[in-house]
């Protein structure tokens, strides 16, 4: 009798588990059948009433029914959990193509970028980076660089003179003077910075631009050494080997003085509009430091010699990014600056 009752209960409970529509319904089935006061518990209590020889067999059946029902309940339970999780996840759909909020990084000025790049290159070569003031003494800007008053070379650099008798530095070369005074020989330094020339502004001329001065003072420094240094430098700047040539150039603070040309990177030599059909592009002035400059810097030219060069940072920036109007660089226009 009990056996039949058990079978019927199992069958009807399995059906109810399958039919439960909510976790709550399922729970009520569990309480009703498997709970402490549930039907199975009741049957279990009634076990004492049946014959001892039957008890073991019915007990087994009872356990099997209990396990079967618990398994079914758990499976159904996890089906509900799975469905709930799925529903939550579905609800959490987002549009990944929406624009991200927040501030975007700004930018560094292209001149800053090229200056930092060159500073890093020189630092890696053991070169000290020195800065100097925008306003200089006439002595540092001219006299100490072997350009005495009334020297026609002063015309080469149209100068802004100031009401206090000083001038805006026309080149970064006065930092040579400061470097020699501060460190003495041997000396390996560069000086990037802002310089000024009293010139009308147009797409290719500025009264304010950027240079990078370099100077090396050591024993027995030769033109061959200078060439090596320049070639190394230019290879890093242009990320490729460049063919260079030296030709005479006059700068009172060097002797001999040179203009260093590089073979045109656009046409490679045969001539094009960029190099004005010459195959060469004038890039930087350089030379062996004039003994007078060393002497005025407190360095004995019989013992020490050196070379110096000047790179136009503004020019490099314009070459690198193909900028056709120099005025953009100090124009403060974000439409320009945001491109870098």
């Amino acid at each position: 009798m009990m056996e039949g009752q058990l079978q019927q209960l199992a069958a009807s409970t399995l059906a109810r588990i399958g039919e439960a529509a909510t976790p709550e319904q399922l729970e009520s089935v569990r309480v009703e059948v498997l709970g402490r006061k549930g039907t199975l518990a009741q049957i279990s209590k009634d076990m004492g009433k049946i014959a001892a020889e039957e008890r073991a067999r019915v007990g087994k059946l009872l356990n099997a029914a209990k396990n079967e029902l618990e398994g079914a309940l758990d499976r159904r339970q996890s089906e509900f959990e799975q469905a709930a999780l799925q529903a939550r996840l579905d609800k959490e759909w987002i549009d990944v193509t929406l624009p991200a909020p927040g501030v975007r990084p700004g930018s560094l000025h292209p001149l800053t970028q090229i200056q930092q790049e060159l500073e890093d290159l020189f630092i890696s070569m053991g070169v000290a980076v020195l800065y100097g003031p925008e306003v200089e003494t006439e002595y540092n800007n001219f006299d100490a660089l072997n350009i005495p008053p009334d020297h026609p070379a002063r015309d080469m650099q149209d100068t802004f003179w100031l009401s206090d008798g000083h001038c805006l530095r026309t080149h970064t070369s006065p930092v040579q003077v400061r470097g020699m005074a501060r460190f003495g020989p041997p000396l390996l330094m560069i000086a990037p910075g802002r310089v000024f020339r009293n010139e009308e502004v147009d797409p290719s001329h500025e009264h304010t631009f950027y240079q990078l001065e370099g100077m090396m003072v050591d024993r027995n420094v030769s033109i061959a050494n200078m060439l090596y240094f320049m070639k190394t430098l230019l290879r890093h700047i242009f990320k490729r080997d460049v063919t260079v040539r030296l030709r005479p150039g006059y700068f009172p603070f060097v002797e001999p003085g040179f203009e260093l040309d590089i073979q045109c990177l656009i046409c490679g030599g045969p001539g094009c509009p960029v190099c004005k059909q010459s195959g060469w592009v004038e890039l930087l002035p350089c030379g062996l430091v004039h003994p007078n400059v060393l002497r005025m810097g407190g360095i004995d030219p019989d013992e020490w010699s050196g070379f110096a060069f000047g790179l136009g940072l503004t020019r490099l920036v314009m070459m690198r990014y193909a900028i056709d109007d120099i005025r953009h660089l100090q124009g403060g226009d974000l439409r320009f600056l945001r491109q870098f």
């Binding site: 000290a128 061959a224 005479p248």
Partner: peptide, 26 residues
């Protein structure tokens, strides 16, 4: 030096690495 260098031709000078103290920059 300039007179002789320019007339002989600077192109005849091969680049040579300078001898410098191996020291970190200031």
């Amino acid at each position: 030096v300039e007179e002789i260098g320019r007339m002989e031709g600077y192109a005849t000078i091969d680049p040579k690495p300078p001898l410098v103290p191996a020291a970190p920059a200031t």
